[in-house]
Design a protein around this nucleic acid. Sequence first.
DNA 1: ATGATAATCGAACGCCTGTTCTGTGTCAAG
DNA 2: CTTGACACAGAACAGGCGTTCGATTATCAT
Lengths: 225, 225
Amino acid sequence: MMMVRKSKGIGERHQKILDFIASYQREHKHPPSIREIGEHCDISSTSVVNYYLDQLEKSGYLERDRKISRGMRLTGNTPLGDMLRVPVLGVIQAGEPIPVPSNADFGSFTPEDSVEIATSLMPGKEKGKELFALKVQGDSMIDAMVNDGDIVILKPSQDARNGDMVAVWLSDRNETTLKYFYKEKDGFRLQPANPTMKPIMIKKNELVEIKGKVVMVIRKMDRFN
Amino acid sequence: MMMVRKSKGIGERHQKILDFIASYQREHKHPPSIREIGEHCDISSTSVVNYYLDQLEKSGYLERDRKISRGMRLTGNTPLGDMLRVPVLGVIQAGEPIPVPSNADFGSFTPEDSVEIATSLMPGKEKGKELFALKVQGDSMIDAMVNDGDIVILKPSQDARNGDMVAVWLSDRNETTLKYFYKEKDGFRLQPANPTMKPIMIKKNELVEIKGKVVMVIRKMDRFN
DNA sequence: ATGATAATCGAACGCCTGTTCTGTGTCAAG
DNA sequence: CTTGACACAGAACAGGCGTTCGATTATCAT
């Protein structure tokens, strides 16, 4: 006698059915039918498959939707959340202007020039719209605690609030930088992330172009990158 | 006359059908039936729905699987890749030993104490097995270019190769640190990521425990974090 | 005005699919 | 030995569903 009872958990037959449903779903992107389960689990009768699926449902291993065919879903793990794709527009480096997105950049980028990010990693209320990524080239961003090779995720913006980290092109100095933005009495201050380093003070009449706010930084420890 | 012809692309009816399939799939986690499409797109005949689905298939907007009911899938975007969930075991800070995973940590963690990461962000050949995450607390890791609040993703390890960034507990000094590891003649060197800072030289007889290799660092610019 | 094509429609049909029913075999408990 | 529970089986059935068919209407080009 084989049963899904309190003392033993599920039996061999139950486990085989669960394994088959999981592998079928991975391969076909939809669940199997009761007949397909029977064929692959050596069960010749659809009512026995139904008998086992009912037990697995009662024990919490799967959910059934009786309104549609193939209406079953494994519940073993909580499902992963959503993910989004952000275009990588190029590199950000000290002496070059910052690439910013045009409208075309959001409609036509491919997996090859983008990064995928779980939406659960998005800070606060950020919904992922209009984001773009830049790859850091050179050591000039270390005062922003950003390394050569890091990926910075930005939201396009031409202004900032105190405390935002911004990507700024200083055309008078022919320089790009990543720094925390604070308003001051007669201009504003660009504060390095590294507290041991000095800020840049910008007067109101100096040419400065904020290109975006930094939303996230990703560093891959790929030694051969 | 409304048609899916070269000059015009798809018509209003086609677009409405595509939009319905997309929203139905998001909500129900499986595609609609032909009758459901008809009901929501003001098409009273299943053969007209079939007529439009055939056209959308020929134009590359969707794929149909004629062997099963509801056998349709939108092809508009390349599908996103896989994602994995990494348990966050606690915090890493200067004067405390480093949390490391036990076997139980990989079987039972929940979405609340984990982070989701696209597998495409994994460096090199890393498959995501056995990874764990720690949240950085305090400014003591800035020499590793890692900020308070950053999330470091690690792979458990008790040894390292030259160039690896490691999480090390120095029990003689009662100190945790993140640094690049290099072997030296009579011990090894722990090199800060920030090139302006000095390394720690460790003699062979000093107590040092490598707990893991850093695989990735994630920084969210959540100002209210 | 005419012919061709596209769009639309309802009905009927067949297949896929899950449910229900009845029955049999095995086992443990009384 | 009897009884009840569990596991298993086949058959029949009903419903969901997509396909096919024949027909009508609308639109367009000639």
